[in-house]
Amino acid sequence: MKKADRPSAAKPMPSAANAYFNEESLKFLRGLKRNNRRDWFDPRKPLFETVLKAPMLKVIEEVTGAMVEFAPDHVRPAQMCMMRIYRDTRFSNDKTPYKKNVAAWWSRHGLEKTSGGGFYLHLSAEELMVAAGVYMPEREQLMAIRGFLLDHHEELRGLLAGKKLRQLFTPDYGELLSRPPKGFPKDHPAMDLLKCRQWALMAKLPVEEALKPGLVKRIVTYFRTAAPLVEWLNRPLIAAPKENRPLLFGLY
């Protein structure tokens, strides 16, 4: 084993008065990107727990504490929000065992086992991503949102046109349909929105932002701005049919 590949000793975590993540956190992510193998990760798992998992749980906990004010239906224990570092490779041609980021997903109560609207955060070696909305909804939920759009599309347009929202986020509508969805009027004024496969917001920030003491405050600003859109998207899903399905994401 080369010296550069040897696991380094875990450094003490910075206090909340300083920062959550540190250079050692990013160094681990860069190493994982180059060495996505069990024989590399296993001896470094204690380091992962110290420089990535522990600070990520702390960030989640503090962000969630602030969400009580503007997204109370998404308040959950930090362990239930943090996504597992392990990839599910059963149905994938890519058999690398680990994700290249640490991530969290704040789902809405009652929609934990589906793809309802929520809030997302991840840190990788390249970026800090903050996002919100509905991603890759199941067929029933896709239809529910489209049906809701028929009479409420002006509401959604108003939310998407918000000045602060447009300053902070980039919309992500997925791959648009090339023609009107089946069963919907072709001349409906909401057709541009009806052709969407998802309704989401995304912000990719420089990875250095994760090292700053104001990280939680900044994430909360993004989530607070996106909260009305997430609430709107979940309105038609609360009454949508629910089936017992496995969790979409691997969570701790």
Rank of each mutant, 00 (worst) to 15 (best):
R84K: 15
A227G: 09
R218Y: 00
E127L: 05
D39C: 06
D39H: 14
V220H: 01
L215M: 04
W199S: 07
K27G: 07
K58R: 15
A78M: 09
D151V: 01
A54F: 01
K100T: 12
M83A: 09
K27S: 13
R90S: 11
G65S: 10
P185K: 13
F91N: 13
P46E: 07
L156W: 05
P206K: 11
C81K: 09
A16G: 00
K195P: 06
R166A: 14
R44E: 06
R245E: 04
M82C: 09
F223D: 03
A71V: 01
A131G: 10
M202P: 01
I60C: 04
N35Y: 11
T221N: 08
F41D: 03
T50F: 00
P97G: 10
L201M: 13
A210C: 02
I219T: 02
A16Q: 09
R44H: 09
L111G: 11
M191A: 07
E69Q: 15
M136S: 11
R139S: 11
A200C: 08
R235Y: 00
H122L: 07
L176T: 00
M136P: 02
L57V: 08
Q79L: 02
E155V: 05
G214I: 00
F148H: 15
L156P: 04
D73Q: 09
G250K: 12
E243D: 13
M129W: 02
R166C: 12
G110R: 03
N93S: 10
L215S: 01
E209L: 06
M13K: 13
R218P: 00
D151A: 12
K242E: 01
K163Y: 03
E140C: 08
D42M: 12
W199A: 01
V207F: 00
F48C: 07
P97T: 10
L26R: 09
M82H: 08
A240M: 03
R76I: 07
L57N: 04
G65Q: 07
M13D: 11
K45L: 02
M136R: 13
A239T: 13
E138W: 03
N35S: 10
M13F: 05
A19Q: 01
A54R: 15
L32Y: 09
Q79I: 06
P55S: 11
P189Q: 09
F41Y: 15
G116C: 02
